[in-house]
């Protein structure tokens, strides 16, 4: 029969004695320097290929705008380049964020169920579906966008169908409209949203989802109150990965839009390559960067804390 001896006196709940903090050999000096030596190559890389060009760009944004390529540019703390650029091109900036935001909403509506289905419902089809999500990335961005041009063509089946069912006026079109640009942005950057979201959904403990179902949460409630909060790190990463390149994109507007849909990326492209107005191009680049950075910081501020017990743990 079972051993019914009394519980052993050594209680398992007694916390193990904390080992005294010890300094491993090597001496304090070496220990302090080593981590910095390890990050040195990375930092050098960053400084060389990110930091310096950024400084160069910052300097270019402050050049005297009357300079030109042939006469040269003079650094003049010309902060006026910023308000000038903003005054002329704020509609393009606004459009960039508007289109990228709309595309983000669309991508969330498509990508959340998609990532959810692949991570939790696909079973043995999971790998195949993942490949399907990633597969378009194997072809060039340009080719993919050009493919949409064919699909959305005025003479194509889609426009024909929409015209037949009167969703589109007889002379209506999809190409060269904001719709086409937003669609292109959504399509092109969707995998960047889906993959991190998938990764964090896939790691989700399914028993927690079962617990929610057991506790009277219907599928929608389960998704909103448990799945989504737990997938938040992936969701935030996906939103950033989607939104940042989408707001700076110019290919979609160029190929699927008309001049009335051009985004700030098109203006920067033209400022550097066609108009050779480097100060303005640099100023616009920085304005875009600052706006995106502001959004990112806001988003991270807003979402931190909820998922991390370390920040608001302990007794209140």
């Amino acid at each position: 029969m079972t051993d019914r001896s009394a519980p052993s006196p050594a209680s398992h709940r007694t916390p193990a004695a904390r080992p005294a903090a010890s300094v491993p050999g090597g001496g304090p000096g070496r220990r302090r320097v080593l981590p910095y030596l390890l990050v040195l190559p990375g930092v050098a890389w960053l400084v060389l290929f990110f930091g310096l060009p950024l400084v160069q760009l910052a300097a270019a944004s402050l050049y005297d705008p009357t300079g030109s390529l042939s006469t040269g540019y003079v650094f003049a703390w010309a902060f006026g380049n910023y308000p000038d650029a903003l005054a002329t091109y704020w509609p393009h900036l606004a459009r960039s964020f508007g289109y990228a935001g709309l595309a983000l909403l669309l991508a969330l509506a498509l990508g959340c169920p998609l990532a959810y289905a692949i991570a939790l419902r696909a079973g043995r089809w999971r790998n195949l579906l993942l490949v399907c999500v990633v597969a378009p990335m194997f072809t060039s961005f340009l080719v993919r966008t050009l493919a949409w041009k064919t699909i959305l063509s005025d003479q194509g089946w889609l426009v024909g169908l929409l015209r037949d069912v009167h969703l589109l006026a007889p002379d209506g079109r999809l190409l060269a409209t904001p719709f086409a640009v937003v669609l292109g942005l959504t399509y092109n950057f969707l995998p960047l949203l889906v993959l991190p979201l998938y990764a964090s959904l896939e790691r989700l403990d399914r028993r927690v989802l079962e617990a929610a179902t057991d506790l009277y949460a219907d599928p929608l409630r389960t998704f909103l109150t448990v799945t989504l909060p737990l997938a938040k790190p992936g969701l935030v990463a996906g939103v950033l990965l989607f939104f940042i390149p989408a707001s700076g994109d110019y290919i979609n507007a160029e190929l699927l839009g008309s001049p009335n849909e051009y985004m700030v990326g098109n203006v920067i492209d033209s400022a550097f390559l066609v108009r050779l107005d480097h100060p303005q191009g640099a100023a616009l680049s920085f304005l875009l960067m600052a706006a995106v950075l502001g959004l990112v910081v806001t988003l991270l501020r807003h979402t931190r804390g909820e998922g991390s017990p370390a920040l608001d743990g302990g007794a209140r």
Partner: peptide, 29 residues
């Protein structure tokens, strides 16, 4: 102290880079 040094280093690099770039660009002609 390390942070200070590092920040100083970065400030120094950025500052000198800005100064270097601050001379502008010579004419292409």
């Amino acid at each position: 102290p390390v942070t200070l040094t590092r920040r100083g280093l970065i400030t120094g690099v950025l500052g000198s880079a800005l100064v270097a770039a601050g001379c502008g660009v010579e004419g292409a002609r």
